[in-house]
């Protein structure tokens, strides 16, 4: 069986008329793009539009992506950009924006095959962050989170921000060590 191709190879093959390479890109990055769109608060229809929009942008730039190896991060960033435009409805018809050329560093969290690492890091957090992030990942609403943690509902948002900041710091440290 053939070795899996890396993102750079896939992008170059897709630019060279290879549908299977495009399909592999979708298999590899589609789920993350969906997760990005949903994390931006979009419903299913709008999230589907954001993901589709990012793929269409990739078609427009098949030959001009500056860092082909970073196509996964490019797709995640572009999905987020489309999602933000969609959520600000007044701008969805005025697509005058410069495409992000440098991938957002935070997109690396989605870029790497890092699910295991991410969960390990979440598990290493102190309470209430550990439970809170597990609940957030399961899409449990703020009210339920407040109930489970025994805290006022008004504190869930700020706590979530603090916990995500801690998580980000830990992930950054691990990446530095690697």
């Amino acid at each position: 069986m053939r070795e899996p191709r890396d993102p750079k190879e896939l992008l170059e093959a897709a630019a060279d008329d290879d549908q299977t390479a495009w399909d592999e890109l979708e298999t590899r990055f589609g789920p993350r793009m969906w997760a990005v769109a949903r994390a931006c608060g979009l419903n299913e229809t709008d999230a589907a539009d954001a993901v589709q929009g990012a793929w269409l942008r990739l078609l427009e730039h098949l030959h001009t992506i500056r860092d082909p190896a970073g196509v996964g991060a490019w797709l995640a960033t572009t999905t987020r950009r489309e999602a933000m435009l969609i959520s600000r409805k007044d701008l969805t018809f005025a697509p005058r924006f410069d495409l992000v050329r440098e991938p957002d560093p935070a997109a690396a969290v989605l870029e790497a095959d890092s699910s295991r690492l991410l969960w390990k890091t979440v598990s290493s957090l102190d309470e209430p962050c550990r439970t809170l992030l597990q609940l957030v990942a399961a899409d449990v609403g703020y009210q339920q989170v407040a109930l489970r943690l025994g805290v006022p509902i008004g504190s869930v948002g700020p706590t979530r921000t603090r916990c995500l900041e801690k998580l980000r710091t830990l992930i950054s440290l691990q990446e530095t060590v690697q």
Partner: peptide
């Protein structure tokens, strides 16, 4: 803004809920 969206997305992805619908793929 600390790019919370990416971390939330990564957490949800890792949790395996809300997978990408087949029609979107």
């Amino acid at each position: 803004m600390i790019n919370e969206d990416y971390f939330l997305a990564a957490l949800r992805l890792a949790a395996g809920n809300d997978p990408i619908p087949g029609h979107v793929s």
